[in-house]
Amino acid sequence: MLRTPILAILGLTGMLLMPSTSAQVREYPSEHGTLQVSQVVAGLEHPWSMAFLPDQQGLLVTERPGRLRLVTLQGALSEPISGVPAVYARSQGGLLDVVLSPEFAQDRLVYLSYAEAGDGEYAGTAVGRARLSLDNRQLQGFQVIFRQLPKLSSGAHFGSRLVFDRDGHLFVALGENNQRSTAQDLDKLQGKVVRLHPDGKVPRDNPFVGQAGVRPEIWSYGHRNQQGAALNPWTGQLWTHEHGPRGGDEINIPQAGKNYGWPLATHGVNYSFLPIPEAQGKAVAGTEPPHYVWEKSPAISGMAFYDGERLAAWRGNLFIGALVGQALIRLELRGDQVVHEERLLEPLDARIRDVRQGSDGYLYVLTDASNGQLLRLALQPQE
């Protein structure tokens, strides 16, 4: 193969140069102009998440089978970065979210969430961190800082998304491992949002600290399968979203110690069209209603607030990927209230797993497929 010598000559050893896609711009209508979509890179195996490095160095992308790669904004794809932990790559499990430390410029710490096998047949979500080498080729000294216990998943509903708040706390949005009742069990970490210090220690002001029989990591509970989370850049509040069953996908703004209902309260039914056995209705006393709900599930994944200038018409909007819906959902906000929804990229004919605002001010999405793509979104305003 001639790839290595060519890359060495170009000074990009370890990076696979992809052909330019500048001529492959697809256009889609939107309410604010023409949405222009270009492929940055393809050939990703079920990519799940991305995190942008500073100074236009590109972005880290996770692939669910267990690989972490660096992609440049020009479309060069690295070989797998070494030092990634072994993952439980079955069904919905594998390597999931990636975020950078708030102090990445000084500590170069990268945080990963992933499905981790247990001693028996079950698995659970784990979170760890490691230092990214200066050449961006290795994760050094990987350390697990959190484990979802007990391990109850046979391949479903791991969550998970990672978000740092303004004070440096790490929130982990978890799934209930398809074990519905556990979302209400405060001695278990299924169906919870947990709040940690960056090293995995529990903050003293978490809502259940010191209560017997309750996991002190818990921030909120009663969640189903959370695959979107982001910090509102204007309020500093954590927003999450979760898959409903058949119907009832929802957005929440999780508050300390609150119960978000699953499976007691839901807008959905079972996949068999039968009622959820534990459900008592759409609204149940003692539980928080969804902040926003879809009665018909688009199967949401990924979440990003847009606060850039490049797509000025969309500043202040919230973007969410849709898997079954195969679209990018744009939500207009007035304060915290959702006042309008638009479906973008139809017909893309691809499942959107993640959406992020890039370091260059464009929007980027990942498509969930065996030949997944990283796409860049620009907006040509209406004249």
Rank of each mutant, 00 (worst) to 15 (best):
G14C: 08
V163W: 01
L274G: 13
R180E: 11
L60P: 00
G66D: 06
L231A: 10
Q140P: 04
Q140S: 07
P5H: 03
E63L: 07
R334F: 06
K282D: 10
Y114I: 01
V355Y: 02
T287A: 09
E116A: 07
A229K: 03
L44M: 12
A256M: 07
L328C: 10
L238Y: 03
R310W: 09
A42Y: 10
L345P: 02
V41Q: 02
T125M: 02
I352Y: 02
P203T: 07
P19E: 15
S301R: 03
R166E: 15
P216R: 04
R64M: 13
P150S: 08
D55I: 07
L44V: 13
P245H: 04
E116H: 04
A126T: 00
D187W: 06
F142H: 00
E176G: 02
Q211I: 15
L374Q: 09
Y114N: 01
N177M: 10
E342M: 11
I329Y: 01
M15N: 05
G14W: 01
V40I: 15
G222R: 01
Y260S: 10
R90N: 13
R129D: 00
P54D: 07
A312E: 14
L318I: 12
L73G: 13
T125W: 00
T125E: 02
G213N: 06
P290K: 05
L2P: 12
R67H: 13
Q184C: 08
A230R: 00
T4Y: 05
Q280N: 08
V40C: 11
S38E: 15
S133W: 05
V144I: 08
A369R: 14
E217Q: 10
Y271A: 11
S160V: 08
P289V: 12
M18C: 14
D119E: 14
V214I: 15
T72C: 06
A256W: 01
P254T: 04
I218A: 01
A299I: 09
R131V: 00
Y88L: 09
D349R: 11
L231E: 07
R310I: 12
E309R: 14
L10N: 11
S301M: 05
D199T: 00
D249K: 06
L100I: 12
P275K: 08
V144P: 00
G222E: 07
D354M: 02
D249Y: 04
S160F: 01
K282M: 12
H291G: 13
Y111K: 00
A265Y: 03
H197D: 14
L112C: 02
L377C: 12
N317R: 10
W239Y: 08
G302H: 04
L348Y: 08
Y362W: 14
K188M: 14
Q227M: 05
D368L: 14
G168I: 13
A265M: 09
Q106D: 13
T240A: 05
E250L: 05
E250G: 07
R215W: 04
F305W: 06
L333H: 05
G118S: 10
E341I: 13
G75Q: 03
I352V: 15
L35N: 03
L70R: 02
T21I: 11
E27D: 14
R64T: 04
A327P: 03
A8M: 08
D205H: 12
Y364S: 09
P19F: 12
K296R: 15
L374K: 10
Q57I: 11
Q190N: 13
N259G: 12
R334A: 10
D199Y: 01
P290L: 11
Q92S: 06
L363M: 10
A350H: 11
